[in-house]
Computed example of a mutant assay.
Amino acid sequence: MGNTDEYQTVHLWSLSEDVVIESETDDGELVLSGPWGPERIAAVPPVVREALHRMELGPVLLKNVEPRPDSKTSKAGVYLVLLPVLERLSHLVVRTLGVGDFRGPVLSVCPVSRHALFSSVRLTAMAPIQLPRGVSFTLEAEGFALERDGSTHRVLLHRPEAVWVVGMLVRPVTPDAVSDALPLPRALTWSIIEYLASAGMVTQVETGVEAGMEADLA
């Protein structure tokens, strides 16, 4: 498995390939052009402008975005300034999971709808999960792609680690069981599963007891 430090998870942000920063106005407004028309952001702080320009070029680690020396935004406050804007632009933002071995990203979650909102999902270690019905699995130049009818995201699996995890999810299984079965650090396995869940590609499975209780209450 190699040095565990090499598998430290890295969470990256970028603008979708079809998104371009068209212009900046004198009053600090940014205009982004995307597949669903222009997006205007008024009074953009310098740290947000810097982050978006870097995200236009490729995946960015937000903790590496530094405020300008003359900025009133502290290093600790960068997230407080950035995250509300990035949440608003969630339908234009690709979320990428990487690791510290410099062999490329593990997977990317790409928006495919104006209503796409990447919201982190926390799972329970012993609660069964699996791929939901309607998920397609196809090979593309960038890796395997997961898509689902009606989903606001698609997922690109760039590396074998992500494919291994997906392969475990074709039947109901707990996150703990996936972690125990694969030769990967637990943190990486869990991050892959949580990214898939946040993209709508993993659902929790009702146990027989839970299903029976719901039937009794109906």
Rank of each mutant, 00 (worst) to 15 (best):
81 V>I: 13
159 R>Q: 14
37 G>M: 07
215 A>H: 03
74 S>T: 15
96 T>G: 12
161 E>Y: 04
181 A>I: 00
46 P>A: 13
172 P>N: 15
53 H>A: 07
119 S>A: 14
216 D>L: 03
18 D>C: 07
79 Y>H: 08
179 S>H: 00
112 V>L: 14
5 D>Y: 07
40 R>G: 02
46 P>W: 10
190 W>M: 01
38 P>Y: 02
155 V>R: 14
97 L>I: 05
109 V>G: 14
18 D>Y: 04
98 G>L: 02
124 T>L: 02
144 F>A: 11
190 W>F: 05
67 P>C: 10
20 V>N: 04
158 H>P: 03
99 V>F: 06
118 F>V: 06
95 R>T: 11
149 D>M: 03
24 E>D: 06
103 R>C: 04
92 L>I: 05
75 K>C: 05
27 D>H: 08
74 S>R: 13
20 V>F: 11
158 H>I: 04
32 L>V: 09
1 M>P: 07
23 S>L: 09
19 V>A: 03
97 L>R: 01
98 G>V: 02
141 A>Q: 08
142 E>W: 05
27 D>E: 11
94 V>E: 15
32 L>W: 02
78 V>E: 12
86 L>Q: 11
135 V>K: 06
87 E>Q: 14
45 P>Y: 15
203 T>W: 01
96 T>K: 07
116 A>F: 10
70 D>Y: 03
93 V>P: 01
37 G>T: 07
187 A>G: 02
210 E>G: 00
12 L>I: 06
129 I>A: 10
154 R>S: 06
23 S>F: 03
109 V>E: 14
157 L>D: 07
168 M>C: 12
56 E>T: 09
15 L>V: 06
51 A>D: 05
183 P>N: 03
194 E>N: 10
14 S>W: 02
66 E>G: 01
90 S>F: 08
25 T>C: 02
73 T>F: 15
104 G>N: 12
74 S>D: 12
146 L>R: 07
149 D>I: 09
206 E>D: 06
45 P>N: 15
21 I>V: 13
86 L>G: 13
60 V>I: 09
130 Q>I: 02
172 P>C: 12
169 L>E: 09
118 F>A: 09
31 V>D: 11
88 R>C: 02
102 F>C: 11
159 R>G: 07
59 P>I: 03
60 V>Y: 09
208 G>T: 05
141 A>C: 01
122 R>C: 11
162 A>N: 12
105 P>N: 15
53 H>G: 04
198 S>M: 06
190 W>C: 00
